[in-house]
Every structure is written in C-alpha cells, then in structure tokens.
Design a protein around this nucleic acid. Structure first.
Lengths: 344, 344
DNA sequence: ATATTATGCGTATACGTATACCCTATGGCG
DNA sequence: CGCCATAGGGTATACGTATACGCATAATAT
C-alpha cells in the first residue's frame, strides 16, 4: 500500500516483486524460451496485477522496431477539404482491423504530396512502413515513389498491379472486372458502350478497366469505338461533364461503363437531365460499390472490390516487405453487383 | 564521402559537425532561447543537409510526451464489420488535419468496448490523450468512461454537452438544431410531427434533438404528441422499422424528424412503400448531412453539423485538457440544409 | 573597481527496455 | 569420473534524446 498509484510500474518493479532481474521480465513477457514456465507464469501474474504495460517508446528505441504502420492518403488538395474518396475510407476499416489483429498500431495522415514521407515516418522511427492510398497527379506521384525506393523506405501501395511497377503494388483485378462489366452489358444486348474515365497511362487502374471492357467486347465480336471514351477523374462533377460531352457529341450509345461510382453518379445526373431513360435508353455500370450506389435512382449496378481483402492484403504485403519475406498474393477479384441501372 | 548513407544521423553527428555538444543540438532544434542565433542557424543548416530527424521514440521516452493523439471509434460490433458511421468518418478528415497543424501524430483504432484503452494507449505511452467517437451500449459506455476518469486518462468525447457529463464532452447544439428542424416544419405548415430516434437518456444526443423539436412546437402553440415518437438507432433498417411501426399504428402525421440521415433514409423507404408522397403527404428532415442525403429521392432536408469545426474543436479541447488549460468552446451550431423532402 | 546577473554552452545523467555475453548448476554420455 | 551440452537467468550496456546543473565569460550595476 505504500506504492504511488499514479506512478506507472516498470519492468524493474515487476522484477523486484518476482525476485528476478529486469531482463528476465523482458524475456518472459516477450516469450523467450530461455525462461522457465514457472517463472514466466509468475511474472505474467504480477504484471497483470500491477496493470503493467511495456513502454512503447523505450521498447521501440531499443529494438528499433515500432510495430506501427503509417497510412497515407494523398490526394490533390481538394477545394472541399473534408471530402475524401469514399472508397478509400471504406478500406480504412479493414486496414485498422488487420493491423490490430497483427498487433500493429496505425498512424494516419493526409498528405498534400510532400517530399518527406520517409523522413517524417520511417527515418524518425514513427513507423516501420507506409501504406499509400490515393489518386492524384500521377507523374508527380511516380517521382515521389522512385524517391521512396531510393531511400529504402518500406511501403506498399494500392493501384494497378503490373510487374514493372515502382515498389510493391497490390490491387483489384481491374482488367478482369472490366471484362465482367463488358460481358454483362453485352449480355443484356448493348452494342455501343461508352467508357467514362481516363484511359491514358496517367491512370493505370482506369486504363486496365477500359482494356477489360474492350477485351469483353471483342470477345463478343464487337469493336470498341474510341469516340465513346471520355476522360474523367473520380468525382461527380467530372462524371457529369464527361457525360455531357458525350451527349453533345451526338454519338449514339446504349450503355455507359463509368470507371468509378462517383463518375457514374454524375453521369446519371447528366443523362437523366438530357431526357434519357435509365436503363431503358442507356444502361449504366459503376465501379467501387460505395454506399451511395444503392441509393441512386435507379440504383447503380457496379463492381464491388473486395475491401476487406484489400485491407488485409495491404497489411500482409507490407509486413512481408518489412521482414524481407516474399509477397504471395497481390491481386484481388472484383464482383459484379446487379442493380436497376442495368436491369432491362 | 566516407559516411554510410544508410546510417541515420543522430544528434551527436550534428553536434560533431557543428563543433558543439549534443545537448546544444537538442536545444537549438527545440527552440530553446539559451542558444545563440548564430549557433542555432548553423545547427539547423547542418541538420537540413544530413536529412536529420529527431528520433521520435528517444524523444518521447525522455520527455514523456509523445505528441501523438489516439482516435478511438467504438461502436457495437457490427454484423457488417466494414460499416462505419459515415458521420464519424467525415469527422476524420478534419481531425487529422487539425492534428497535423498542431504537430501531432494521430493513432487510430476501432474498439469493441474493451476495458483497457488507457492501458493500451496512455499507460504504454503511445499517446498523450484519446479522442472518443461513437455510439453503442450507453450504460456500458458510461462505466468505461468513469473508469477512464479514475485512471486520470486524458480524453475528450463527442456527444451531448451537459455540465454533469463524465469527462470532457464537446458536440453540436443538438437542442438548437432540433428547434431549427421543428421551426422549419411548422413554417411549412406541418402540425403533427413525428420523431424517429431514441428519446431516452440512453441516447442523450437524440434526446436533445427531440427536446429541441418539442420546444419549437410549443413556441408555435402546438403540443407534441408522444404517440408520434418512435425509438430508433442510427441505421437504415432501424429507421425503416420505426416508420413502419408509425404507419401501422394508424396515427396521422404530416412530417417526420429523423434523428439521423440513416434513420431518415430508411423511413423514406417505408413511407414511399406505404404509398405516401414525399414531401406532399409527409415532409422529412434528417440529421448529419451525409453524402447520401443529396442522392435520395426526394433529396433530403437535413441539419448539417459543422464537421470541420468539430475536428478542430475536439483536438483543441483535448490539447487543453492535456496541458491542464481551461477549455473555451464546447458547442458548435448546426445549419439547416433545405432540400426537396421539405419543399412544398 | 567589485559585486551581480544574464548569456551560452558543456557535463552528467535519466527515460525504460532489449540484447550480447557470461556464469552456474544439472544431466547425459562415454 | 571427467567432459560437454543445455537450461535458466544474471550483468552490463546500448538505443537517442532532453534536462538539471554547473561553469565560464561578458554585461551590467553599485
């Protein structure tokens, strides 16, 4: 009873009470097998009683391992600052859970493309590695990634998975998903399918989706019409503008495959305003299955990415990278969610 | 050139190059005024050149300050694990930004109401304080909070602001927002206004909103009918069920004030299915202004909470609490967003 | 001119843990 | 009965920084 309740116990306190030395406490709690079962049990009991916790800072300082990962969202600074891509937000849940399961803490930050991630997070020993999520200026982005590789920073990013990519990338099977979308539209009888989304190599994921669409069309004996492709970034406004451009061009089309749900939602607004009936005149497919997709009129058919799988895959891959183990899986399948916007 | 590029520089390296002692480097970089301007400038230049960063673990260990806050979402374990209350998610952006602005890192975690937050985060020196966000089993919740207070844990939570609350709470002006909702419905001629949301003291925020509604009605000479109140938690399904219950009861009503947008969206589905025309037969107001609110049919009138303000207020309050300074502001105003669901 | 105070910095050390290394006792084996 | 391996754990120390304290020198006061 003479102890100060406010003073947090250290491993020395435990050691004293257990009649052993401080290193033995450390060894016992970390599971070293050079401690007898009886001693270990005793130490654990005492630690429990005193509500002892290993000091994270001291532990990290000594072991040079933080058991912390950093999650960086980097998007172009948005006029509406509080707006975050909903798709990435929903990945957050699975990432945090996977981190917790693996005993890792998660630091989170939104970055405006600064130059010093490695300095900020790895060199200052805040985290053992970095998860990168986001779109943005792709060229600028690549430059930064090369820099990270040079600095030996451990990181993994979500994106288009290809062998020549910079650093380690995991992502959905975008080509396969594009094929599913195309096949579905062909199946319901559509012939002239428009694609809304940047198809250049500035947006590899969108490009993959477009390539998948083209492949499905060709497999059905249709030739994709390049005039039916319109660039768009992932936002409602951009989707609206792209659809307007398509409508005003006078091209005929009976389906729209939007590279993201946000684009699709904007496009549906433009199409409806133009007096087109959905899905009768134009069928629409989105990508991501954000919560809003089931609230639109008509509800939006879309490709659902495996968000839960994505989170654990990202964490798995990063931990493998940190421990210099080979990374097993890198690609996740997507699933077609059929709703009213393609129900004819 | 003989230096190892991979070895991270320490304050000793800087000190050696600057011809001073290590503590002087520490003082210079932390802005102590007992270092001459010339020395400081020189040290900063060298640190810059070497890409030196203060080791976070060593710094935190020595100073017993982590400059890190922990954000805890605690909700009842959901069957759909990846579902997070969208309102809290949008608060995330402003919290991270405010932390960054103040030079704090942010740890994030989802908790299933475990007992040991303080152990996990404060006692193990992972963070200086905790931000709590979430609904959940309110009684259980209160017990945990009392425990936190006992342990001397620094924390702040989002919720119903009242003087007798446990710990430090900041939140929206729920009563005032409820009044705005009520006044608006009265203004468009509605007399029999239903409230969907738990009005017991298990959900103080909802209760406040209901009280605000009642106040506005009485101010207009109307007496709220308790039969028009239905309990609901913040989910679509719960809103749907509550609205069904109301419809089946045979009560007449010409407006619904839902305690959250999710409840409102579920209720609108039930109302529409029952053949009621919105807003002609029944006007609907929600709460939160989640992104989906502008996508429903009809679009949803709602009360927008000041999310950006909320984030900075939470961080401000917590930092004040950590430094034992008085907390200035605790209540944020909400704003009525008029959309189609009340446009008559 | 001496006493006083402030300035600028070095010396020593603490923060709490993890690990390399060393030592002792025990048992197995030939 | 001597030899070595092994279990079990102690001793010493490093991780990199921040701070209490002391000590000069210079600036001011008296």
């Amino acid at each position: 009873m003479g102890r100060q309740p406010s003073a947090k116990p250290t491993s020395f306190d435990i050691a004293y009470l257990a009649g052993v030395s401080q290193p033995t406490v450390s060894r016992a709690l970390r599971g070293s097998k050079s401690v007898s079962a009886a001693t270990r049990a005793n130490i654990q009991r005492i630690a429990q009683e005193l509500n002892y916790t290993v000091d994270k800072n001291a532990s990290s300082l000594r072991s040079q391992r933080t058991h912390t990962l950093a999650l960086l969202f980097f998007e172009d600074p948005n006029p509406d600052e509080s707006m975050i891509n909903p798709f990435f937000l929903s990945m957050l849940g699975s990432i945090t859970r996977e981190c917790a399961r693996r005993g890792y803490d998660l630091l989170i930050s939104f970055q405006q493309m600064h130059n010093d991630w490695h300095v900020t997070y790895q060199d200052s020993h805040r985290s053992d590695g970095i998860i990168l999520l986001g779109y943005g200026d792709y060229q600028l982005y690549l430059t930064k990634l090369e820099h990270l590789v040079e600095m030996g920073t451990k990181f993994v990013r979500w994106g288009s998975v290809s062998e020549d990519g910079i650093g380690l990338t995991v992502g959905s099977d975008n080509v396969g998903a594009g094929e599913q979308a195309g096949a579905h539209l062909v199946e319901i009888g559509r012939r002239r399918i428009a694609f809304l989304g940047d198809a250049s190599d500035h947006a590899p994921e969108f490009q993959d989706r477009y390539n998948g669409l083209c492949r499905a069309m060709r497999a059905a004996g249709l030739e994709p019409d390049p005039a039916l492709q319109r660039d768009a970034v992932s936002s409602e406004d951009s989707g609206y503008a792209a659809a307007r451009s398509l409508i005003e061009s006078g091209q005929t089309f009976d389906a729209v495959f939007a590279a993201s749900d946000l684009i699709a939602i904007g496009a549906m607004r433009a199409l409806t305003e133009a007096g087109l009936r959905l899905p009768h005149d134009v069928a629409v497919i989105g990508f991501d299955d954000i919560p809003a997709a089931s609230l639109t009129t008509p509800t939006l058919t879309t490709l659902m990415q495996d968000m839960k799988g994505a989170g654990s895959l990202l964490v798995d891959a990063l931990l493998a990278r940190i421990d210099d183990r080979p990374v097993e899986q890198r690609i996740l399948p997507a699933r077609l969610i059929r709703r009213q916007s393609t129900a004819v």
